[in-house]
Nucleic acid binder design. Structure first.
Length: 582
RNA sequence: GCGCCUGUAGCUCAACCGGACAGAGCAUCGGCCUUCUAAGCCGAGGGUUGCAGGUUCGAGUCCUGCCAGGCGCGCCA
């Protein structure tokens, strides 16, 4: 049942609009700011000109013409607004029926029609720490991937590792001087990072070190077997360390090929840029001017340095081309922060190449950079970044303490959780706090890392969402089944305001997912789920479910069953584990 | 100097790409567990949306200028 379309069809003639305007009219319907104003509203300002009447008059006239039917319960004018009340039993039965018929399918839409999206996220640098800041790209990317799949896209997840570049020169330099086999075996990432830092610090006092590091990297590029073997080993050990974190977070990728893998294809594309006349020499370097196409003053896209070495911009160009040839993507998304200029340069350069070579499909236009705010204040007092695994550990431990304490205060209020169960719940709750914190504001806003804020379990937090889910779980543990059959019969029994607001909110799920997907904004889903839980808890505190009589109990179970299904689905999209008890 | 982003309650953030009296959480204060998990619920206080103009029926939202902060600015990736 598409309520907006139905209403729009009824309103079109009264507004003297042609039938093909039905869709846009449906889109003009909004939720009133407060439930007292009704369930849907139409602001009438826009029609004043063509109808040559005041918005107030139009609203009043529409209210008179909109007779109640199977969807509409009534309509009143409130100044320039037409407020519409819906037929609650009918809408309730329809919404609950949609959810309960196939909870996994509810909220799915086929925006993508099977098109492939290449999604580039996480992308840590080998031999550099995987700190809390990387969580943003990882989490954001993982959620976008699930959202895109939910909306009918096929997603190719690419972890474009930073496994190439002068930093390896530093690490290899340090290894050759101070390398300690035992320390490497013991903890590869930590040790490689310390080697890198040590060499880098030495280079600040002694420029010769930097030169030697460059030289080592040059030998790596030329394929020196010993250096290459070292590089391969460091890469593998680092990746194994990253994999522990990914496993813990439930994140996986389809490819871990990084900058090194694309390296052989860099020369050819640079030559294409030259042949097409798009790249020009400038101050000894090879660049593509992009200010003209971007429309503002911006540095050119540099493909080759004056010493002849290729740049990472050139690698990104080659990589984008490779991605298109392999996947024919409908979108190529880079989840990366603070690199807006870089991606603007790369995409613009590719666009120029597309024009110069006359591509049939200008796929450069399908490349997009999804940026996000900076994480501030995540350094320890020693000035080092906070490592993600430490944050995860702390989150888990704190969750366990809180749970133990609460259970001690109110023993009969908490289901028993022992040993492995408690471990599992603590890990899930700690992660929920972290992951939710990350999406509890719009992605572009900067985040202040603060232990007490991040690891909060009350209010608008991940654990609150899990708690709501677990509360519903408690009810079903006592009774067992979800009623689904005779919805038309039991829906009219749900007549209080709290139940109705829940139904209305459940109805908005698919729209929310679509918006979140189109805007690349997981926050919108998080915000939706928070509002949903808020409604659930208000309902929960005011009304009983079990023991309210055969009909009403079944009706409320259906409502809560549908709510829990939507909540669980939304949480999984966010990478948060729905818990049946906590 | 050039460019991008951001200024909303004491703090952290919303406001569905211009709509009804700007809403939540935290913190503070006051209520609610013999009822399905109190990690919850209900209530109170708290605002000239950085400042000044402009656009129109209507601006936190769009335009211009200023103020404040963050981040970038061809040979690091």
């Amino acid at each position: 049942m598409d309520i907006e379309l139905h209403i729009a069809r009824r309103l079109c003639p009264a507004l003297e609009l042609p039938p093909d305007q039905t869709g846009t009219l449906a889109g003009a319907l909004v939720r009133p700011p407060t439930p007292a104003h009704g369930d849907l509203a139409l602001p009438c300002f826009g029609f004043a000109r063509s109808l040559r009447r005041s918005p107030q008059q139009i609203a009043a006239s529409l209210a008179g013409k909109l007779e109640p039917d199977e969807v509409i319960a009534g309509a009143e004018a409130a100044g320039p607004y037409l407020n519409i009340r819906l037929n609650r039993p009918a809408v309730t039965a329809s919404v609950l029926g949609d959810v309960l018929a196939d909870p996994g399918a509810y909220g799915r839409r086929d925006l993508g029609r099977g098109g492939v999206v290449v999604l580039d996220f996480s992308a840590p640098n080998i031999a550099k720490p995987f700190h809390f800041g990387h969580l943003r790209s990882t989490n954001l990317g993982a959620i976008l991937g699930r959202l895109l799949e939910h909306m009918g896209y096929r997603v190719f997840r690419k972890n474009y590792l930073g496994d190439w570049g002068t930093q390896f020169g530093f690490v290899i330099y340090a290894w050759q001087r101070w390398g300690d086999e035992w320390a490497l075996e013991k903890g590869a990432i930590d040790y490689l990072v310390s080697l890198y830092i040590r060499a880098y610090q030495e280079s600040e006092g002694d420029p010769g070190v930097r030169e030697q590091a460059r030289e080592l990297f040059r030998r790596l590029e030329q394929g020196d077997p010993d250096i290459r073997a070292l590089w391969a080993r460091f890469r593998e050990l680092s990746l194994a360390g990253f994999m522990d974190t990914y496993r813990r977070l439930g994140v996986s990728f389809d490819s871990y090929d990084g900058e090194a893998a694309i390296n052989p294809q860099v020369r050819p594309i640079i030559e294409r840029f030259q042949r097409a006349g798009v790249a020009v020499q400038s101050e000894g370097a090879l660049v593509v001017e992009v200010s003209d196409v971007i429309g503002r003053e911006i540095a050119p896209c540099m493909l080759q340095k004056s010493d002849g070495a290729s740049t990472y911009a050139a690698r990104d160009c080659a990589e984008a081309l490779d991605r298109f040839e392999r996947h024919g993507f409908v979108a190529n998304i880079y989840v990366a922060s603070r690199q807006e200029d870089h991606f603007a340069q790369v995409f613009a350069a590719l666009g120029k190449l597309a024009e110069a070579e006359g591509w049939r499909e200008n796929w450069a236009q399908r490349c997009e950079n999804i940026s996000f705010g900076f994480v501030r204040g995540m350094s320890t007092r020693k000035g080092e970044a906070v490592w993600l695994s430490d944050v995860l550990d702390e989150a888990r431990d704190r969750a366990r303490r809180v749970r133990t304490q609460k259970a001690a205060q109110n023993p009969q209020g908490f289901p028993e959780l022992l040993g492995a169960d408690l471990d599992e719940v603590s890990e899930a709750v700690g992660q929920a706090a972290l992951l939710y914190f990350d999406v509890s504001s719009r992605r572009m806003s900067d985040i202040s890392f603060d232990w007490n804020t991040v690891l909060q379990f009350e209010g608008n937090t991940g654990p609150y969402l899990q708690y709501t889910h677990a509360r519903i779980g408690g009810i079903f543990r006592k009774t067992g089944q979800v009623a689904s059959g005779d919805l038309a019969e039991i829906a009219p029994l749900l007549e209080n305001e709290e139940e109705w607001q829940l139904v209305l909110h459940l109805r908005a799920y698919a729209d929310t997912l679509e918006r979140a997907c189109v805007h690349r904004e997981p926050f919108e889903l998080a915000n939706y789920l928070y509002a949903l839980c808020s409604l659930v808890n208000t309902f929960y505190n005011r009304h009983k479910v079990l023991g309210t009589g055969p009909g009403l109990e079944r009706a409320r179970l259906a409502l809560l069953g549908a709510t829990q299904a939507v909540l669980a689905g939304g949480l999984r999209l966010l990478g948060i584990r729905p818990l049946d008890r906590m």
